[in-house]
Each structure stands twice: as C-alpha cells, then as structure tokens.
Design a protein around this nucleic acid. Structure first.
Length: 152
DNA sequence: GCCAACGTTGGC
DNA sequence: GCCAACGTTGGC
C-alpha cells in the first residue's frame, strides 16, 4: 500500500491510536476493488513511501478491519470529498491498517529493482501508479528476509 | 519542476 | 461507445 510520507507516513501509522488507521482517500476503482474484494483481516501489508526523497518499502502492517465506507468522501471539508458518494456511500470504501513492524533495512525502489525474484513486482513497472497492489507470497518472503523487520 | 503514463470526463 | 482533453501520479 502506497502512501506519501508528507501526508501520512509509516511513523504516523505507528503513532496512531492502536497503531491503526482507516486507509482513507483512495479514489481509484482498481485500488478500491482490491481493498473491498481481496483484503481480509490479518492479511499482511507492505507499506511503501512514494513521492518522497527515497521511495521504497519501509514497514509492515496487517489488515485490521475489512472494507467499509470511507467517511472522508462524505465530508465537504475533506480534500477527499466526493459529492457522488453522498447518495452512494459505498462508492468509496477502505480497510483499516495496523502497523506491525518496521523494516530495519528499508528497501528503496532503487534497491528493489536490483533484487532477484522481484522483477515482476508491479511497483517496479514503469508508469505504475496504482496505490494498492497485490504482492505474491514469494515476493513478500524475499522482502521480509532482506528488510529485517523489527516488531513494534 | 519536468514529463511520461495513465485514469477520468464529457462531447459527440 | 469512441476518443480528445484534461487531471493526477510519481520517479527523476
């Protein structure tokens, strides 16, 4: 799951109440569908920092709650407000994510590109903007091994 | 700040 | 339903 650290960083997640946050603001159907249809409680999440000095995977989390309506879409004062969601609150949904571990060896995008076995990762694909992407078990295994996660 | 790549919108 | 125009993402 990508996040811009200037907006919401992995540290912010760690500092959040119960280290858990509603993953608000996703306004892309593919990403929404992925949360809604595939992310179940307990599923592991890789947290990726984008649009920052060193983009890359910095931490781990887990799905703490299955998809439910994103209330930021209903708040006219939110930058994520969507008037179309007022009539249809299930238009935008999100899961809750709980931070579980920090990578003591964060894996930058540049490093990820060099790691054997990760060649097919979507995040490495040119022009890949999807903010929530599936990761295979094999890929996750490699990342967990190299990233040396420290439980929170 | 640039710009390629992509998603969305809206006229037809 | 097509597709041009536009807006956004995100690495560099």
């Amino acid at each position: 799951m990508k996040t811009e650290p200037d907006v919401f960083s992995f540290d912010d997640l760690v500092k959040a109440k119960k280290r858990t946050t509603p993953w608000e603001g996703v306004r892309n159907y593919q990403a929404r569908n992925f949360m809604r249809d595939h992310m179940k409680v307990g599923h592991q999440v890789l947290v990726y920092h984008s649009s920052c000095e060193v983009p890359g995977i910095v931490g781990l989390g887990e799905v703490a709650r299955e998809a439910y309506p994103d209330k930021s879409a209903l708040d006219p004062n939110s930058e994520y407000y969507d008037e179309k969601a007022v009539k249809d609150p299930s238009r935008w949904v999100h899961v809750d994510v709980k931070g579980t571990a920090r990578l003591t060896k964060p894996l930058s995008l540049a490093e990820l590109r060099e790691i054997k076995g990760l060649e097919a990762m979507l995040v490495l694909r040119r022009g890949m903007r999807l903010s929530i992407q599936p990761v295979t078990d094999a890929e996750a295994k490699i990342i967990l091994k190299l990233g040396k996660p420290a439980a929170l």
